[in-house]
Amino acid sequence: MIILTPKRSFTVPVGGECISPDTFAAKSTSEMANLPVWEGNKKRALGHLFRIELKTAPSESLTIRIRGDAGRIRRIGAKMSSGRIVIEGNAGMHLGEEMNGGAITVVGNAGSWAGSRMKKGTIEIKGDAGHYIGAAYRGSNKGMNGGAITIYGNAGNEVGCFMRKGLIKIHGDVGQFTGIHMKNGTIYIGGDSEVRAGAQMLGGKIVVLGRIPSILPTFTIDDIKSRVKIDGEKVEGPFYRFLGDLAENGNGKLFISQKQNTHLTPCERFL
């Protein structure tokens, strides 16, 4: 296990893409300390910003543990393919970007774009997360393409933007435009959702257990389902099932808890 402890607090953004089991593998602590890191426009060595300790524990995969706040450190675990990262505080933006395997756990909150463009692996965030979880890069239509993200707190807008595959589970509330432009995959929201869930979706599945103020006019009610399956697990409903986004000729499915959303009862007349 490698333990990184920030030597001081950071104000300007720090590029943490080298903090990844793939980069650390087979390196001595002094080699790790020499890895280049950008702090704003200054190129520094990792050892300049962090105390690095190596604790050999009998574990099969490499684990990196960050003790302290990493809220300003971006792209931790970017492109990692194996091993494990545990962040005991907050994590900055682009956590696990383009991740290809392994696992990341954040005890605190994570910034926006966590798990963006990820293909494999798991990300677990105990606190809240920002916007664009599992999203695509600007201009691209290739969002999250596999793996799983679990957030125990709340998340912001555009969760799963341009998502293609995989699972995003949020136990708290989410902002607007959940699953915008999503093509496939599953988004589960344990709490409440703001408006415009499923906007412009082409396929995939969004499940909202809590309340949602309204459904887009471009969705049409299709059925009431007593339960829905998420990643093999059954979640008990009943749920309204809406299809859409019809403005895009989409075939996505929106499952909305019937009990929590009595204001949607008028929809039932179309069934």
Binding site: A199, Q200, L216, P217, T218, D245, L246, A247, E248, N249
Partner: peptide, 10 residues
Amino acid sequence: QAFRMLIRDG
């Protein structure tokens, strides 16, 4: 979005 649907004859 409603306009988009209408122009598709939705």
